[in-house]
Amino acid sequence: MRVAILGAGSIAYGNAALLASLGHDPVLWSPSGQSGRSIARGEPLTATGALTGSFPVRMASSAGEAIAGADAVLFALPANGHRAAMDAAAPHLEAGQVALISSHTSFSGLYLAKKIAERGLDIPVVVWGTTITAGRRTGDASVNVATVRAKVDIATIPVSAAARGLATCQALFGDRFVERPDALAISLSNLNPQNHLGIALCNFTRMEHGETWGQNENNTDSVGRLLEALDAERLAIAEAAGYQVRTIREHYHLSFHVEPGPVGQMARELAARGNGGNGPATIDTRYVLEDAPFGLRPTVLLGKLTGRPATLHQAGIDIFSALYGRDFAGENDLLDEIGLEAMTLADLKALVRDGWSARSH
């Protein structure tokens, strides 16, 4: 299958290498135009780590060129680039295609579904709970793939197209997908923003000084208590919305195979194993710049919709905004376009279930 991959960072490169290794035809597009010039000149994409080899991958000069004739369109870039990439892609999407978002945050799937509905197209939007590959880009035509995940949660907008969405994902990447009820369940299952808030805030000067520091060894008992308090807010919102999601302790247990207990204790066990890697060595990190506006902000709004205030999440946004001298809540360029603040919980649940077909656009 031909797959347009919109993005040219570590996740886009990892997906491109994986797809090529599975016999598909990935075509990358760099929104900035600065990445992948070596690939555009014909150099293969080289992968190391959990996936090794050199793969024939193409680089398109525009979103339209990448999308033309593709079976699927995969958005594989940070959340703060979603709107620009989706705006660039929307005029070129074609009937019969399936859109995939790796990974879903800040209801960008609803934003894309709205752009699709405005064109009157029948294109499902499949949102992933996390990325299939993790790693880092090591050069203009190289990537180190740290892991290829065995299980990834997904949901489709509209839910009626779920079978088509799942079949497309399986045809591309194999049997590794776990269906969730809808895109709201995916959003409520994302622990990264809350966890990154606690870790980054409590180790902020380490980041600012550019120190090398172990993430799990500095996830102390006190930091762990903060993470669990943030998790309690997320769990209360999920319960009020009618969803069952994993707790942070269950996440650590299932993902890292440590015995359940206080998060600080579980982190210590991981640190003793040498698991977890280093934390950010700069304040120019996605732990804040992406997660504060596009991860914490949606949780705060969901807290208002459900009557379960996410006060610690809001405090995190406010503290980070003060530290950086920025308005992180205002930097989210998706939620106003979706109209989330003006919705009721019933409105949102209907929207993730049915898409924009029953609403004016």
Rank of each mutant, 00 (worst) to 15 (best):
S21I: 05
S21H: 13
L22G: 01
L22R: 15
G23A: 04
G23D: 09
G23K: 07
H24V: 02
H24W: 07
H24M: 05
D25F: 03
D25L: 03
D25K: 11
D25H: 10
D25S: 08
P26Q: 02
P26K: 14
V27A: 14
V27W: 13
V27F: 06
V27M: 12
L28I: 01
L28M: 00
W29T: 01
W29S: 01
S30L: 11
S30C: 09
S30H: 05
S30T: 02
S30V: 02
S30A: 11
S30G: 00
P31N: 11
P31G: 09
P31Y: 14
P31K: 12
G33S: 09
G33W: 12
G33F: 04
G33T: 06
Q34L: 13
Q34S: 15
Q34E: 14
Q34C: 01
S35M: 14
S35C: 00
G36R: 13
G36K: 08
R37Y: 01
R37V: 02
R37D: 03
R37C: 02
S38E: 15
S38K: 11
S38G: 12
S38Q: 15
I39R: 09
I39A: 02
I39K: 07
A40V: 01
A40W: 10
R41I: 03
R41E: 14
G42K: 08
G42N: 06
G42L: 09
E43S: 01
P44S: 04
L45S: 05
T46R: 15
T46E: 11
A47C: 06
A47D: 09
T48V: 05
A50I: 02
A50V: 01
A50G: 07
L51H: 04
L51G: 04
L51F: 12
L51I: 08
L51W: 10
T52S: 13
T52L: 06
T52G: 14
G53R: 12
G53N: 02
G53V: 08
F55L: 01
